[in-house]
Write a protein that binds this DNA or RNA. Structure first.
Lengths: 219, 219
DNA sequence: ATGGTCATACTTACCGGGTAAGCGTGCGGC
DNA sequence: GCCGCACGCTTACCCGGTAAGTATGACCAT
């Protein structure tokens, strides 16, 4: 849905073809979400099918004034009245949060605290620790990109996108800490002879020993 | 991908049919993400096509012991060796954040700060304000559900899912505040005769006056 | 002048997530 | 006995998204 709305927003500025729309979309979002060219044209075709855009007649290009990009030589599209109305209404209504998108990590942790295989539970602490490592890695990447973006000055838009990713990654780390604390608290409240699955270790290293010690100390 | 992995995780506990998988999935995630029955069966069929699950022979049910749910009367599936390996590896690898999922709100704000229609920019402040209102509303909903969940005690899993939604909503509100501050800062640094689009107001109320005053004060 | 490379422009067949509507059976309650 | 609901499943479709392929034009090196 967001590519579709983004195309309508970009076309409210000026008529464009599929290739240009893809370029503008990626330029203004800092390439965070690469847009496959096949999807750009499919989305454009669906917008045309739904009556939100129409091809610009060829002779209209000549009369459109000097600001028409002359270097664009493919088929160009412009908004219809319905398309313009839809583009305007996008700014005016919030992105709804009634049905949050499925989140693989939330599903994973929700299942991890309930799944038992052969009488053993999943080692939730290990799952949380590995995820925290990955999320902190991503956070460092975003922070570094943010510094580079500020230095290069490619624009406010991309730094805002990076900020969104940073805020989300920080929230995820906090949530993982919270999950870990909640699971420990629940284990204290309901001590069960329920040792975590002994996961097949790649190497017989200290982590395994540490894990066992940690589990015992938690009792 | 997450439904698929979730089914593998559930089947690592015991064989189940499509209807049961759907029920267990929803029960353990608190119904946050309703699972369409058509998707449950399609996902199950794809798992079978990919050799990760196989039907349980009928006679195997009789010999499976007393813990086999006798009340399930449809086709049941169990993990193959490949399926069990895949289920195990899900716990062991983090959910990667290299290619973050497209986020309509981040796209929207990135476009809002760059789009100009007929020489006017988008009223980013208004977009942020409306979105903040919706996100705070969702946050209140999640917080209320959290209180109810704690009272009923349906389980740790659902409270963890609610916590995830709460942490994410709080991060989104902070990001929106940050966007608003960044846009104001940028406007001060590069004052441009670029008034926001006068959006068609539904009512001639104080907000409009406030907005005009605010914009003037910002110059 | 020619050839190679890259940007521009577009198509196509497909995959996976997801849905609504429909159908059949069995069981419990009235 | 009948109705409604739970259980069980199918089907046709929509939408987001992709990789691979094709064609043309411009530019640069030879």
């Amino acid at each position: 849905m967001s590519i579709r709305q983004g195309f309508l927003a970009l076309l409210s500025e000026e008529p464009m073809g599929g290739y240009q729309l893809r370029q503008e979309f990626e330029a203004r979002t800092g390439g965070t979400w690469p847009l496959n060219i096949g999807q750009a044209y499919t989305t454009l075709q669906r917008l045309e099918r739904d009556g939100l855009v129409e091809p610009v007649p060829d002779d209209a290009g000549a009369g459109a004034g000097a600001d028409t990009p002359a270097e664009s030589r493919g088929e160009r599209y412009r908004l219809t009245a319905a398309g313009r109305a839809e583009a305007t209404s996008w700014w005016q209504r919030p992105v709804e949060r009634n049905a949050p998108a499925r989140d693989e990590l939330a599903i994973k942790l929700a299942l991890a605290v309930t799944i038992h295989v052969d009488g053993h539970g999943v080692d939730v602490g290990a799952v949380v620790q590995r995820q925290r490592t990955e999320t902190l890695r991503a956070l460092r990447d975003y922070t570094r990109l943010k510094k580079d973006a500020a230095a290069d000055g490619p624009g406010l838009a991309w730094t805002l996108v990076l900020d969104s990713l940073i805020f989300a990654a920080e929230a995820e780390v906090r949530w993982l800490d919270h999950v870990e604390a909640s699971v420990l608290r629940a284990a204290h409240a309901h001590p069960v002879v329920d040792p975590p699955v002994v996961e097949p270790a790649k190497t017989t290293t200290t982590p395994k020993t540490t894990k066992n010690t940690h589990t015992k100390a938690g009792r």
